[in-house]
Design a binder for these strands. Structure first.
Length: 595
RNA sequence: GCGCCCUUAGCUCAACUGGACAGAGCAACCGGCUUCUACCCGGUUGGUUGGGGGUUCGAAUCCCUCAGGGCGCGCCA
């Protein structure tokens, strides 16, 4: 006996295959590349049917036929398919399809069978992609500014993994350069304090290279720990010793402590990176210098003098010969310096090493999640990756996350690093909870600015998407608990044709678009679409629930209709599965009930 | 001055990367509400997609231009 082939998860992809087959039959002469733009999508206006294809329009030119002349026979051919109830040409050349109810209802056992893997797609074809995100300087605890990038990067990595990419989550630790040097001096100050130094803060600051840049109290325990470990060895008499005695030790110690702190912050947010790459380690291993030598060998490095920037000049501007990377050869506006005047590498030079290292590790795609203040850095890095790529170009993409303005009671919360009033990531999580933080950070596309309203995100109302989606899941679970939590297998053989209400079918249609939502969001590198999808799905479910309020015959559990009840429980269970599947991508825990 | 991002209903935002009549939630207006535990429900109104030009069967989406907002602009990372 022949087994029926497993129903496709993505019914739109399946339909597209059929559409292409029909087209090839109707127009055998059609070149293959003309088919690439053929799309099969749910139409925006549901009145047009379940599916719509632009096929006739996009191949019209290649076929040298007006779209309607193609749409008509295409519709006829598609109408023959078993899952199609009706196919009709429409508008300027669309073909609209209505699917049979049997086919639509078949999605429910499909979802239940796949569980939370529903929507997992092979579209990424195992392409190896590295997603680098957060990469906050190890100079202090994470604050809200880092938070959006952390959430967007993590969700994007999850999304790509679900869409069939082989993903590595990466954190690039900027533990070389002036910032961590300044950190070391600040930690040293706290160490002196722990030893009971006679110096005032001002006296000490005056003696450090760049003043005392980090004054936060979070370094006090670091000073204590240094004392516990080294006693007075690094500062005899609690007075500053020559930096050669302590600088490396203190810097490494402080960086390690800050990274512990940051890892703790990330864990509180539910973010876990696969790899942490240390800038200092890469430099020490000569990776950056080798990468620059490689660029030099290709003829992209030269000594030159940059034009001064237009407009207001920096105070100390003077023309100076520098080691430059010819990034303009790859579309950048100006060539970029690789060495500082003291001969050490610029941040850019080391980051070239970082990217060379990734390329050497064999990634096909490099994705960077950066804050908007790094926007001006994109084209030079893109140029560097292009220049470093060999035969096979390595993809390089940057997702920029715009600023988050924290609001409280409709007013922006003022933040000042100097006054110590900036909000840490921990503050944020403590105040509204990890899941609300994560969900909310994904309720805007990342290249738009966002207001994060501390009051709104914990509000239990319809206009809070966090609540709205969680509430839908809690309602699903509530219904299932009442029914004694039937297992998925008990729900797969039920008479689904009892589901006839338009709201029930609308919910199934929505669930059927989950796989293609995953693929489209992954392809666009836009994890926020998952949040919006879940909101739509939740809305479809709430509508159905509310119909049960007015019309008792539409309630999920009906003692007098055991068959309909089982069918509806299957629908509810499937809804919960899809919500969980989506929340998992977002890194948000589904709730069983609302408190 | 230059570069990048943004501008969509009164407000906050979507729009599946070029598809049909641009959609949600608030707000406003009209009506309903002893609820399968659940902090409401249904409906109506609301748009020259910042302005102008272009590309094509078709534009919020691509190109040019102007205006407004944000971010950045050699030895910070």
């Amino acid at each position: 006996m022949e087994q029926t082939p497993a129903a496709p998860q993505d019914i739109f992809a399946a339909l597209r295959t059929e559409v292409l087959a029909c087209l090839r039959r109707i127009l055998p002469e059609l070149p293959e590349e003309a088919l690439s733009r053929v799309a099969v999508e749910p139409p925006r206006d549901a009145a047009h049917g379940d599916m719509s294809t632009n096929a006739a329009m996009v191949v019209a030119k290649a076929a040298k036929l007006p779209p309607p002349k193609i749409a008509a026979p295409l519709a006829q051919a598609l109408a023959e398919l078993p899952m199609v109830a009706e196919a009709a040409p429409a508008g300027p050349g669309f073909v609209n399809l209505r699917l049979t109810e049997t086919f639509l209802l078949g999605q429910v056992p499909l979802v239940l069978g796949a569980g939370e893997d529903y929507g997992t797609s092979p579209a990424g074809q195992g392409v190896r992609v590295d997603v680098e995100y957060v990469s906050a300087n190890p100079t202090g605890p994470m604050h809200v500014g880092h938070c959006r990038g952390a959430v967007v990067g993590d969700a994007l990595a999850n999304l790509l993994a679900k869409a069939g990419y082989e993903v590595t989550k990466e954190y690039y630790v900027n533990d070389a350069g002036a910032q961590v040097q300044a950190l070391a001096y600040a930690a040293y100050w706290r160490y002196l304090q722990a030893l009971g130094t006679p110096l005032t803060e001002e006296e000490y600051a005056a003696s450090t290279p760049n003043g005392l840049q980090y004054r936060g109290e979070y370094l006090i325990p670091v000073g204590e720990a240094l004392k516990a470990q080294h006693g007075e060895a690094l500062a005899p008499g609690a007075r500053p010793a020559d930096p050669s005695l302590w600088l490396d030790t203190v810097r490494e110690f402080a960086v390690a402590r800050m990274m512990d702190e940051i890892r703790g912050d990330l864990a509180a947010l539910g973010v876990e990176h696969d790899v942490f790459i240390s800038e200092a380690a890469l430099v020490k291993a000569g990776v950056a210098d080798r990468a620059i030598a490689e660029l030099a060998a290709k003829g992209f490095v030269y000594e030159g003098v940059l034009e001064p920037p237009k407009g207001k000049l920096p105070d100390d501007w003077e023309p100076r010969p520098q080691t430059l990377f010819a990034s303009t050869r790859f579309g950048d506006d100006v060539d970029r310096p690789l060495r500082k005047s003291d001969g050490s590498n610029t941040y850019f030079a080391n980051d070239i090493g970082n990217h060379a290292d990734k390329i050497a590790r064999g990634f096909d795609e490099l994705v960077q999640v950066w804050g908007a203040d790094h926007g001006g850095y994109v084209s030079r890095m893109k140029a560097a990756v292009a220049a470093l790529s060999g035969e096979k170009p390595v993809g390089f993409e940057v997702v920029l996350t715009q600023i988050v303005k924290v609001m409280k009671g409709g007013e922006p919360v003022r933040m000042s690093k100097r006054a110590g009033t900036y909000i840490t990531l921990r503050d944020l999580i403590d105040e509204v909870g990890r899941d609300a933080v994560r969900f909310t950070m994904l309720t805007r596309k990342s290249d738009a600015q966002m207001d994060f309203d501390l009051d709104k995100v914990v509000e239990q109302s319809r206009d809070n998407p966090v609540f709205y989606v969680q509430y839908a899941h809690a309602r699903c679970r509530s219904v299932l608990r009442q029914a004694g939590d039937p297992a998925a297998v008990e729900l797969t053989g039920v008479p689904l044709d009892m589901l006839r209400d338009p709201a029930e079918l609308a919910l199934i249609r929505r669930m059927a678009t989950w796989p293609r939502t995953v693929e489209a969001a992954a392809a666009a590198r836009e994890p926020h679409r998952i949040a919006f999808y879940l909101h739509d799905l939740a809305a479809d479910f709430h509508i159905l629930w509310n119909r049960g309020r007015d019309d008792a015959t539409l309630r999920f559990i009906r003692a007098e209709e055991p068959e309909a009840t089982r069918a509806r429980l299957a629908l509810v269970a499937a809804t919960a599965v899809v919500i969980r599947s989506g929340l998992r991508v977002m890194g948000v825990a589904p709730v069983e009930e609302m408190r």
